[in-house]
Design a protein around this nucleic acid. Sequence first.
RNA 1: CGGGGCGUAGCGCAGCCUGGUAGCGCACCUGGUUUGGGACCAGGGGGUCGAAGGUUCGAAUCCUUUCGCCCCGACCA
Length: 567
Amino acid sequence: MKFSKLYAPTTKDAPKDATLPSHQFLVRGGFISQVGSGLYNFLPMGKIVFDKIKAVVKEEMDKTGAQEIQMGVVTPAELWKQSGRYSVFGKELCRLKDRKDNEFVLGPTHEEVVVDIVRNRINSYKQLPLHLYQITTKFRDEARPRFGLLRGREFTMKDGYSFHEDEACMKKEFALMEETYTKIFTRLGLDFRAVDADSGAIGGSGSKEFMVLAQNGEDDIVVCSSCHYAANIEAAKRAPKMSSIEAPQADLAKFKTPDMKTIDDVCNFLHVDSFYSIKAVVKKAVYIDKEEIVVFFVRGCDELQEVKALNACGAIDLVDAELEEIEKVGLKAGFIGPLGLECVKFYIDFELKEAKNLVCGANEVDYHWVGVSMFNFKEERYADLCEVKAGDSCACCGKELYITKGIEVGHIFQLGQKYAKAMGATFLDKNGKAQPFYMGCYGVGVSRLVAVMIEASHDEQGCIWNKQTAPYLLDIIISNTKDDAQKAYAESIYATLKSEKYEILLDDRAERFGFKIKDYELLGFPYALIVGKELEEGFVEIVERKTLEKIVVKKEEALTKLRELLA
RNA sequence: CGGGGCGUAGCGCAGCCUGGUAGCGCACCUGGUUUGGGACCAGGGGGUCGAAGGUUCGAAUCCUUUCGCCCCGACCA
């Protein structure tokens, strides 16, 4: 490709709203252009990168025996009503009506549709397992699109769905997908971790996220400093917390604690470490048909992890409770404790199970209990509720955990029979009995990966593409296009390499050297060949983008050297 | 969804408070000089001032409504 013909509108300045390197460089380099909030167009070079990433994903998926299909973006709302997600999925689900007032949704994911495809067509266990996948546009009406391609409203995802006769077979496919995703992200040259995750709105039992480690990630991930344990903070576990501080010895007694509404106040007043106190976090749980106040108890030194809390109470959403609502159900804000609590639903972090010598609210204004022991609560009261912090101990090996940032690029789920049951999708097993399918589903954020590649590899000047995803492998820069010798030499190298099927760019624009080398650094192709002044003496230069180091080679040897580098 | 900001040429902005000829930089076009780190000189083209309504002799500017975009947070497979 000749740069003079390429549509790559590069700019010196970044758009004012682009804060992340990937967003800035994608726009400055003319890879993408924005057309609306969270809506982007891919320009020629952006499209090349996108297609290269897509090809890697497709190749690895096809190797596993999964079959590519393509489902419609517009889906009848009826299918979503069958699965129950029409009401559960929030405002991200874009709903629309046709001219006859029939309801539709823009597919944010395709479990419902794929079940419909298989339902009544796969009738026997003999036809299983089956894995169908697609690489298509999804739409989610995000509350706050941002960071360019990292969180758009329209995006491209590879989403695969597998069907199995039993759980064992489903788990086998899950393991195969974990392996496959590892191959995909390794081929793309990314530094990533597969982490334990919460399943969110997709549901199901086991789920793992693939996180690319990056400073600008939106997710917190907990990683063990010693063993292989890694998890999204929403699902992270730790070894039960211990305290070296001696437990306060006291018999069960009610203490007057005037106006002591916070853990700090109470602990200071009673000279107790916050480890030995119980914190009450009041939330309003939103269900499909109702709202109610729910209280979560964790150790005073811990924080409530909201996703865990949401899972514990099975609500659709948890929102902050207003003081008025708290008082209305009979709770005494600042003095809430589990002992004798009856007016609301409540859950207790399981690390508090059978704990002793605690301080907690007495459900009476200006009073706290001391010497509390956590026995006599029903088993179902206990749940994993607290947020893991840096410095906590690993549940697997006991060593220290730390927290780092990640960008989610893949997520794999064991769905079990959730969708098949809800939508009445069954097959006949070996005994001739109808059984709902076991399903798995597996997603890769393909368009997001375009941005992730840059987040993972860039410098002050611009992108640094690897050979696997670079739009072009080499940029031949003619320093002065009025110099016939430079032009002729550059064009001959270009023609030769092009005939050998290398993807290369010839910067033949009538611009000055500085302009073109800046564009090269911004666009970030792996190598550049500079044909300039030294050609007269018989030399040209090869630049490696990653290091920006230049090597001078004899003009006769440049081709050989380039073939070696580009191979 | 809560809080805040901004919409004036393709991009970045000034003008608005105090109403009266729509401006600057970059980009673009023409000619010339220049050609190894985003050149210089001269000339030139391009804007329903986000939209609608109102006040006024007169609105980019004041008032009302509305749409869009962005930032912080909540949310988010």
